[in-house]
Simulated scan of single mutants.
Amino acid sequence: MSKKLLIREIFEKGRKDSGKDSKSGIALYLSLYFYDEWKFEISERTFVRYYDAFLIDDEDKNIDTQVLDKMSQYLEFKDFKDFCKTETFTKINQDSSRTSVSVRIDDEDDPERKHPNITVNITTNPILKLQEFFAKQSGFGVIGLLIFGGFFTNNYFKKEENPAVKFAEVKNDELKTETPAKEIITWKENEITPRDQDVKEEPPKEEKLQCMFWDGKEYIPAHCSDTENGLIALDRKLVDNFKKITTPDTITSIKNVWYSKHQNVVEFFTADGVNPENGKELHELSQHMLDKYIKRE
Rank of each mutant, 00 (worst) to 15 (best):
M1I: 02
S2T: 09
K4G: 02
R8M: 11
E12N: 06
R15L: 03
K16A: 05
K16E: 11
G19N: 06
G19K: 10
D21W: 03
S24M: 01
S24D: 04
G25F: 13
L28D: 04
L30T: 01
W38N: 04
R45M: 09
F47K: 09
V48I: 14
Y51C: 03
L55K: 05
L55E: 03
E59G: 08
D60H: 13
V67P: 08
L68T: 08
L68P: 05
L68I: 10
D69S: 12
S72G: 10
L75W: 13
F77I: 08
T86H: 14
T88Y: 14
K91R: 15
K91T: 13
S96G: 12
S97I: 14
V103G: 10
I105R: 14
D110C: 13
R113L: 11
K114A: 10
T119Y: 14
T123R: 15
F133S: 01
F134Y: 15
A135S: 12
A135R: 14
Q137S: 06
V142Q: 09
E161M: 08
A164M: 06
V165L: 06
V170S: 04
N172M: 03
A181N: 10
I184K: 13
T186P: 00
W187F: 09
K188H: 04
E191G: 00
P203L: 10
C211S: 11
M212E: 05
D215W: 10
G216Q: 06
P221E: 05
H223S: 00
E228L: 05
L234Q: 03
L238M: 07
D240I: 04
K243L: 06
K244D: 01
P248R: 09
T250Q: 12
K261R: 07
N264Q: 11
V265Y: 07
V265S: 04
V266P: 05
F268A: 02
T270M: 02
G273I: 07
V274T: 12
E281P: 02
L282P: 03
S286L: 10
S286T: 15
H288R: 14
L290Y: 09
D291Q: 14
Y293A: 05
